[in-house]
């Protein structure tokens, strides 16, 4: 049986940042997140303890009855990686819009100019997208895009390769070629806590091979990238993600987004989605 919206796992805090009790929202309902003598906890408004999982530097919870364990990212467990707690940023947009933007590369030259992309290198070549039924995830592979400065050590532009994975409706994982370690993938994630259907708290997290940068530099880089996206996300109309075709016009470059929308519709995940009025 398909999981209901309530039965998914959601990120609600950084394990390293849990101090006293913090009140926040999850799916429009108030929850309290914190740490006490007995460990970490999440409680709903009635004081009921909600299930928790500690993974990827974050505390996860679910207001419903999760039928599956929280997904894993085996690549992130390989030794030698820097695990980067990027911290959260609040955005007035649908959690699904935040995820969809993360899956998009065609905006790099215009929103992350001279960092992740630059004119005239705007072309998006055909890549592979599939909905993997056996794991119930969306995957995009063989995504290649021109990057002006792929790493601090890199001179001039290179073609960078990416893989995108959507393991849960409000989470996305990006695997990106790693200049110092050819053959390995850097792991960059976007975990989204849906505060309401049109407001979210975004928790990026990374597991990188990087011996050159300080932790503060890695955090700063990712916050810069995400805040460049935020000014887009807060200005899309409508705020919710339209799941039905017709309202927005995709092209071949949007294959990941098209698959993501189709998958959301198929699994019935419509929190933060706009459906055509019947």
């Amino acid at each position: 049986m398909r999981e209901a919206v309530d039965d998914h796992w959601y990120p609600v805090g950084l394990l390293s940042g849990l101090e006293d009790t913090r009140k926040t929202l999850l799916l429009g309902r108030e929850i309290a997140v914190g740490r006490n003598g007995a460990g970490v906890f999440v409680r709903d408004a009635a004081g009921r303890a909600l299930p928790t999982v500690a993974r990827f530097g974050h505390l996860w919870t679910s207001p419903g009855q999760p039928t599956r364990d929280l997904f894993t990212i085996p690549e992130a467990d390989t030794p030698g990686r820097q695990l980067v707690d990027v911290g959260s940023v609040r955005v007035k947009c649908s959690p699904l819009r935040a995820v969809e933007n993360f899956l998009d590369i065609a905006h790099f030259p215009f929103v992350h100019t001279d960092i992740l992309g630059a004119e005239p290198h705007t072309e998006v070549e055909r890549y592979q997208v599939d909905i993997r039924e056996e794991v119930d995830e969306v995957w995009a592979t063989e995504v290649k895009f021109f990057q002006p400065q792929a790493a601090r050590s890199a001179e001039g532009g290179i073609k960078t390769e990416y893989m995108y994975r959507v393991p849960a409706p409000t989470c996305a994982v990006l695997y990106k070629t790693c200049p110092p370690r050819p053959g390995e993938w850097d792991v960059i994630t976007l975990f989204v806590q849906p505060l309401t259907e049109e407001w979210c708290e975004v928790w990026p997290w990374m597991a990188l091979y990087d011996d050159q940068s300080t932790m503060a530099e890695m955090v700063s880089f990712q916050q810069m990238i995400f805040m460049q996206d935020r000014s887009i996300l807060e200005n899309q109309i409508p705020r919710k993600l339209p799941l039905d075709p017709g309202m927005e016009v995709p092209t071949q470059a949007d294959m990941t987004s098209v698959a993501y929308r189709r998958w959301l519709k198929r699994i019935g995940y419509t929190y933060g989605a706009q459906l055509v009025a019947a």
Partner: peptide, 27 residues
């Protein structure tokens, strides 16, 4: 209308080059 048909981004955030208006999101 202040909306790019592609992904709903406000066109007023875009840029004018010559006789054209471009969306800031995907150009």
């Amino acid at each position: 209308g202040d909306r790019c048909p592609h992904r709903g981004m406000r066109l007023s955030h875009g840029f004018v080059r010559g006789e054209t208006l471009s969306c800031i999101y995907h150009g």
